[in-house]
């Protein structure tokens, strides 16, 4: 069996830890290196798993045996890291949001194309089994044509400090949490977003010190007339039984599909925790996403979620900020 040698480029985004754990379960994958500028969070981890550690990602990219990299750096570095990886001939799975401007993302896509490497955007929600089943039901025509969406991707305030630092993240909740469900809406309609109207604010810091947006409401109108609204707020407090949610209601001419992706859960009430919590038992979306990435590369088939998908979704979030600034609906420039 052919094996895929995967390098991990930065652990700034905590998903990297999850991805590493998934990759190590996969017999067809070798984790051939970890590059991270912060040794305190990764050096020991790499040693424990006997994975070569580099503080400079260029050293990782210089290893000719590495086939692909997973980029989990701060958003602002995605473009630099993706372009460097493509230059080195590595396939790329890049954490979302793919980039912080349409131009940057177009360069990432073109750069990978030019070097003949594949670029996949990390949208694990595409691999949630409830979402896949919903898409199949839609494709069978069970709800007719789509009229409107209502989605939520509510979450907790992210742990790593850089999420609240615009020079590293490029934006707050509206950027971080618009892209997942926006990608699902794009996937279901197959029609480009034409107009965005959004609100953003800072509402969920009990100490009122936060300056980055942690709340909002993003409205989109697709070229085919479909309407979508999405709540991307980091609105879950520590008392909430879980980290957040992914929900999508698809209103069709002949019916409605309602997805509550993490509703496959047990209710857990512990004396020590002092609160109830939801324990998810559904299929593991991260593992399924990585499997799809690895399989496509091993078989030489197109990755199932592309750089263009990442661009189409991130540009909605970026235009949401433009709309907030202008105080009116904005048309997407194409």
């Amino acid at each position: 069996m052919r094996r895929l040698n995967v390098g991990m480029l930065s652990f700034a985004h905590a998903h990297a830890y999850d991805y590493l754990a998934c990759l190590q379960q996969m017999p067809e994958v070798t984790v051939g290196g970890i590059a991270d500028p912060v040794p305190e969070r990764t050096e020991e981890l790499a040693m424990r798993h006997a994975i070569p550690y580099y503080s400079d990602y260029r050293e990782l990219l210089a290893d000719a045996s590495i086939d692909a990299v997973i980029i989990c750096s701060e958003n602002v570095h995605h473009a630099e890291h993706t372009l460097a990886a493509s230059e080195a001939g590595k396939h790329v799975l890049c954490e979302k949001p793919l980039g912080l401007s349409a131009g940057e993302m177009e360069r990432m896509i073109a750069g990978c194309e030019a070097k003949g490497v594949q670029l996949m955007t990390a949208f694990p929600c595409r691999f949630l089994t409830p979402v896949v089943r919903a898409k199949e039901a839609f494709d069978r025509g069970e709800i007719g044509e789509i009229i409107a969406f209502k989605g939520t991707n509510r979450g907790s305030f992210p742990g790593p400090a850089w999420f609240a630092e615009p020079s590293l993240s490029g934006g707050g909740a509206v950027l971080d949490h618009t892209v997942h469900v926006m990608d699902l809406m794009n996937w279901f309609t197959g029609s480009p977003v034409e107009q965005v109207y959004a609100y953003a604010g800072t509402l969920f810091d009990p100490e009122h010190k936060r300056t980055i947006d942690d709340s909002g409401m993003v409205h989109v109108t697709f070229a085919n007339g479909v309407f979508g609204v999405l709540d991307p707020s980091w609105s879950r407090n520590p008392g909430f039984p879980t980290w957040g949610d992914v929900t999508l209601q698809i209103i069709g001419t002949e019916g409605v599909i309602s997805i509550d992706a993490f509703n496959q859960k047990n209710n857990v009430y512990g004396r020590a925790s002092g609160k109830g919590s939801w324990s998810f038992w559904g299929d593991d979306m991260n593992g399924l996403m990585l499997q799809a990435f690895v399989q496509a590369l091993l078989e030489g088939t197109p990755v199932p979620v592309t750089g263009l998908d990442g661009l189409r979704s991130a540009e909605v979030a970026l235009n949401a900020y433009r709309s907030v600034q202008e105080g009116q609906p904005v048309k997407l420039h194409r």
Partner: peptide, 24 residues
């Protein structure tokens, strides 16, 4: 947003308040 046919009428509306509250 509002969509209306003979058999269905669906509406979605977001109200924004002065203190930043959004009601969807």
């Amino acid at each position: 947003f509002e969509h209306r046919t003979e058999t269905m009428n669906y509406a979605s509306a977001t109200f924004r308040f002065g203190n930043g509250t959004l009601a969807q």
